[in-house]
Design a protein around this nucleic acid. Sequence first.
DNA 1: TAGATTGTTAATCGATTAACAATC
DNA 2: TAGATTGTTAATCGATTAACAATC
Lengths: 216, 216
Amino acid sequence: MTKNDGRLPNPVIRRLPKYYVRVRELRDGGREWISSHGLAEDLGLTSSTVRQDLSHLDLAGVSKRGYETRLLEAALGHVLGADAVHRLVIVGAGYLGCALALHGGLRAQGFDTCGIFDADREVVGTKVGSLSVRPMGALNGVVRKKKVEVGMIAVPAASAQEVADKLVEAGVRGLLNLAYCHVHVPDHVEVVDARIIASLQQLAYVISAKVGADGT
Amino acid sequence: MTKNDGRLPNPVIRRLPKYYVRVRELRDGGREWISSHGLAEDLGLTSSTVRQDLSHLDLAGVSKRGYETRLLEAALGHVLGADAVHRLVIVGAGYLGCALALHGGLRAQGFDTCGIFDADREVVGTKVGSLSVRPMGALNGVVRKKKVEVGMIAVPAASAQEVADKLVEAGVRGLLNLAYCHVHVPDHVEVVDARIIASLQQLAYVISAKVGADGT
DNA sequence: TAGATTGTTAATCGATTAACAATC
DNA sequence: TAGATTGTTAATCGATTAACAATC
C-alpha cells in the first residue's frame, strides 16, 4: 500500500520515535515539562514542526509551560505501539540475525521475538540465546500459531525476495527489510527498509558532496 | 550541516542505492537496457520520478531504448562512492558491532573496517574476525593515522553521545548512528541514523493504522 | 515511417515554516 | 499584569507528477 489512508504523514511518523526517545531521557532526568522550542533544539528541528507534529497526538500542551513529559511520553508511546506487544520472527541466523535476536532493546520496546529461522541445515538447531534456529519449513506454522505480525529479513540480498514471499504467505502484516535490495509485496503488507549499506552510501555521498561544495 | 549546498535533494539520495542495487541485478541477469518505466515498476516509483532522478547523473538515456545498464551502474556507483574505498571504525563490540565487523557486504561495497573499539576492559583484546577489539583510548590515533572518514555508533543509547563526541574529536567526517537516540554533532560532521528499533516502531504504526483505516 | 522513450518544463501536491490570536 | 507558549491558519518552499516536444 502506497497511499496514506487517514494516517499520519510519513515524515511525521519518522520523527515520532525521536520525540519518544528524547522525552524518555528527559523524564529519566526528572524533567516535568518541555516546550516545543526545547524539543526542537534538542532534535535539530523548528518549534513549528514540533507543534505541528504533536498536534496530531491525543494531548494538549499548556501555555507558558509546554508539554508535560509524563503525558507526552504516554501519548507518543501509545501511537508507536509501545504499550502493546508486537510479535516478530527473524529469518536468517547469520551474524546480523543473531545480533538482533540477542539485542535486548527489542524486547524492552515491546517487540517479542517468537522465532529465528534459517535455510542452512548446518545452522538449524543451534542455540541463539534462548531460541533454537528452526528450519524454513517451520515458519508458516509458527507465524500462524503465534499470530506473528512482523518478519525481519536478515538474509543475503539474493534470497531476500524468496524469504519475503514466504513471510507474506505465512501471514505477516509487515516486513523489516535489512537486505541490500528491494522486495516486492502485495498491497496489504507494509515494508520498511533498514539497510545499513544503503545508509552508509548515503553518508558517503553527503560527505564527498560537501567537499566539492564548500571547497574544504 | 542542515542545508543542501548544491548537492542532490535528500529524497533523491535515498533512492540512488535502490537504483544501484536493481541495476546490478539486471546486469547480472544479462540485461543491457532498462527504461524509466521498467525501473519505476521494479522499485514502486513513477517513471517521472526515475527520469528526474537519473537526470542528475552524468549519463544520457537513449530514445526508444532507455538507459544502458552498464553505464547506469557506473554512473550510480560513482555518485555513491562505490568506486572509492571508505575507511570506517566501529565503536561498540556488542552483538551488533561484531555483526557489522563480520558482515561481508560492507567490504564488498568499498567500506573498509579499520578498527573496532569498546570501553569494556573485558572485551578489549578479543578477536572479531581478523580484528582485535581495541580500547577507546586507541580511537584517536587510529582515526588520524588511517584517515578514517566514518564512525559507526553501535553502543547503548546511554553512551552514544559520548562516543559521538570522541569520534568527532578524532576527526571523522560522518557518523552512522545505530543507537536508539539522537546525537548532536557540529555542523561540519554529517549524521545518518540507522536505528532498527525506530524502524520497527514506524512499521508497527503503519500496520496498526491500517487496521483502523480500512476496517480489516 | 510510426511508435516508444527521453529530458525538461509546468502543474500539482504536500511538508515545513512563519505568524499571530488565544491562553495561562 | 506581562510575557511565554500553544494551536492553528496562511505563506513558503520543495518534491512529485503530468505533459509533451525532441529524438532515435
